[in-house]
Design a protein around this nucleic acid. Structure first.
Lengths: 153, 153
DNA sequence: TATTGTTATACTCTATAACTATA
DNA sequence: TATAGTTATAGAGTATAACAATA
């Protein structure tokens, strides 16, 4: 019966630490976490429209405008003409942007490997499966409209 | 050599989902995540000064002023006179605040148990230990000034 | 002199609504 | 008519700096 809270608390703690750690990692690049996130999606998606970024980041198009403005001012991305649609802009990484995302990839790998250094193959597999299960259940919980815990008035 | 990235990615995913889920849980209470966080710390610490809250939340005292203003307006907390120090205020939970934090405790336990439902005792222990190790390493990473990954210019 | 909380100011993220230019 | 991106406006979180009251 006991034993599940420690897991949850650890996960929460880890969630916060990962954020801190990642933030720490990018301090000095002049990037906020939102801008970092956009840059990361751009790296994953390749050049794309602001609409696509808005969907990927789950924010409004207006919000993307602001983030792209800032990243453009910082020299990380460029707005280019869309070949087929003159309404749209194609947001693309500049050289600095590419260098930065390459750095992000390396940093992510470094942190990832340090996190579980010394864990054997089987150990990693087992842990991965557990986390898979947990992530799956969380997805379910998020998508299931919470059945109202009767939060009082 | 391979196998650590999945773990990291899952942890990141879980981190985001937990946030979403918790946010979801408190939608309707009219509480933002920052205010929820303050309420939670107040629940953990008991009545305390804004300075103490600022330390606990790792934000500036000025920030706490704003959050307490909002929570006070919402009827969740009260500012009381500090018995020994007339400069300070003692922030305390109102009845509504206490009811809300009690709800938070229940919600946390519900989520926590659903997360690992069906995991046996040994399984939970093993997982807890793994997460302990990971949290420990993250603490180390955050506290160790990143040894400069040579982020270029 | 140091500390507690506040006012003043500013920046970032975020959202909605109305508008322009395309499609 | 619908879509892509923008301007206008607003609210929340956060920070620094200056200031009042109190220690």
């Amino acid at each position: 019966m006991a034993g599940h809270l420690p897991v949850f608390d650890r996960l929460l703690e880890i969630a916060l630490l990962i954020q801190e750690d990642l933030a720490n990692f990018f301090t000095g690049t002049g990037l906020t976490s939102s801008r970092t996130h956009l840059l990361w999606e751009l790296h994953r998606l390749g050049p794309c429209t602001q609409q696509a970024l808005a969907s990927a980041l789950n924010v409004t198009p207006r919000n993307v405008t602001g983030l792209v403005d800032a990243l453009e001012a910082g020299g990380f991305v460029e707005r280019r003409l869309h070949p087929n649609d003159r309404r749209a802009t194609l947001v693309t990484l500049t050289e600095l942007g590419s260098k930065t995302t390459a750095e992000m990839v390396r940093g992510r790998e470094l942190i990832a490997s340090q996190l579980v250094a010394g864990f054997g193959e089987d150990h990693l597999d087992r842990l991965s499966r557990d986390l898979d299960a947990i992530a799956y259940r969380l997805h379910e919980m998020v998508n299931t409209e919470r059945p109202s815990t009767d939060a009082t008035a």
